[in-house]
Design a protein around this nucleic acid. Structure first.
Lengths: 192, 192
DNA sequence: TGAGTAAATGGACTACAGTCCGGTTATGCC
DNA sequence: GGCATAACCGGACTGTAGTCCATTTACTCA
C-alpha cells in the first residue's frame, strides 16, 4: 500500500505564494479592512475561485499569513527556555510565571498584528474558536491552571480578554499598558 | 427658545412597530441567523431603505428588539432590591455580592437571548463596545471594583467572557453550568 | 381648508463574500 | 515522447448588507 505523498503541483504552489505576497502588500498599503478578496485575487493575478478554494475564506487567508509567526510562539512555548517554555528538567518555571510569560508574549504578538488577527477571528462567525491556534492556547493555559477546580472552563475565561475584538476596544480606551496590566492581574487572580 | 419635541410621525411609528413584529416572528420561526434584512423588510411590508434608516444596520435591529428586556435588568440594578440593586440605605449589599448577582442575572439574560445578543454584538465590527448597554454594564462593574488598582480596565476584563460569541463557544463545549461557575469564579478572584 | 415643508418612504443600485463548474494543465506511467 | 487522469484554474453567478435619492405623505399654520 503506497500512501503516496500528494505533492503540491507547481502551478498551485506558485499561485499560493503570489496570493500571500499580494495580500501582505495590499494589507500593508491600504489596511486589512479596506482590502476586498476581489482585490487580492486581481493583484495576485489569480481568479476568485482559486483564492477561495485554497484559503477557504477571508479568515483562512489571515490565518495563512499569520502562520509563520504563530508557529514561532508555539514552539517557544513547547520547547523554548523558561519561563515561556518549560525550561530544563528539574528547573522548570512555576505555572504562575509560565502563565504570565505566555500572556505577555501573546499580547506582544496580538498587538503587533491586531488587524490581521482580528480578521482571522471575526471574518466568519465563530472562527476564533474553531481555529487550531485557539485550541493550542487553550490547552496550554488549561495545563497551567491544573490546580484550579475547572481548568478547562477557566482557561476559556482567561483567553476571553485576548480576543482581538476585545483588545482593540480596550486598547482604544485605556492604551496598551493598562490592557497588559489588566490581563496580567487576571492571571495573578487565577494563580494566586 | 422652544426646543420643540419633534414627535414621531404616525406612519413612522406604524412602520417601526410593523418591522419589530415581523422581525420577532421571523427570528422565532427560522432562527436569527437565517433571516435576511430583505426578508424582514418584505414581511413588514416596508422598503429596505426604511428598515435601514430606522435601525441603522442588523445590529441596530437586534438592539431594538432587546431594548425592553435590557431596560428591566438595568432598572433592577439601579433601583431594585439587593443584592442586584443597591437596596435600602444603610443595608447595602457588599460589592462582592452585588457583582455576583449582576453576573448571574446577566448570564440569565444572555443565555436566554443568545442569538439575538450575538447579532447585536457581531453584526457590525466593534458593535459590542459601541452599544450604550455595554457602557452601562461597564460603568456598573467598574464602580463595584472601586477598590482595585484599575477598575476601568478590570471591568473590561470581567466583561470579556460575557461576550455573546465567547459564551456561545464555551457553552457548546462545557455547558451552561460550568460557564456560569467560571464567570462567578472570576468575580471572586477579582473581589477576593 | 389648503399650501408649504420637513420627514419618511421604497426600490433600484453598489460592493462584497462566497459558490460552481466547464475548460485547462501538470504530472505519473507506459 | 505521448496519453490518461486528477488536480487546478478562473470568471460568471448568487445572495446579502447597506446606500441613495426622486417621490410621497403627514403635520403646521395661516
Amino acid at each position: 500500500m503506497r500512501t503516496s505523498p500528494p505533492r503540491e503541483r507547481a502551478d498551485a504552489a506558485r499561485n499560493r505564494a503570489a496570493v500571500l505576497d499580494a495580500a501582505a502588500a495590499l494589507f500593508r498599503e491600504r489596511g486589512v479592512e479596506a482590502v476586498s478578496m476581489d482585490a487580492v485575487a486581481a493583484a495576485a493575478g489569480v481568479g476568485k475561485g482559486t483564492l477561495f478554494r485554497r484559503f477557504g475564506d477571508k479568515a483562512g487567508l489571515a490565518v495563512a499569513l499569520l502562520d509563520q509567526q504563530e508557529r514561532v510562539l508555539q514552539e517557544a512555548i513547547l520547547f523554548g527556555p523558561a519561563p515561556l517554555g518549560p525550561g530544563p528538567a528539574g528547573a522548570e518555571a512555576s505555572p504562575r510565571d509560565r502563565l504570565r510569560a505566555f500572556l505577555a508574549a501573546y499580547l506582544d504578538y496580538l498587538l503587533a498584528h491586531l488587524d490581521l488577527v482580528r480578521m482571522s477571528e471575526t471574518a466568519s462567525p465563530g472562527a476564533r474558536y474553531r481555529i487550531g491556534a485557539y485550541r493550542f492556547w487553550h490547552r496550554h493555559v488549561a495545563l497551567l491552571l491544573a490546580r484550579r477546580e475547572d481548568p478547562v472552563a477557566d482557561a476559556h475565561t482567561l483567553l476571553a480578554p485576548l480576543a482581538a475584538e476585545h483588545a482593540r476596544a480596550v486598547r482604544a480606551e485605556v492604551g496598551d499598558e493598562r490592557l497588559r496590566a489588566a490581563v496580567l492581574a487576571l492571571a495573578d487572580a487565577f494563580t494566586g
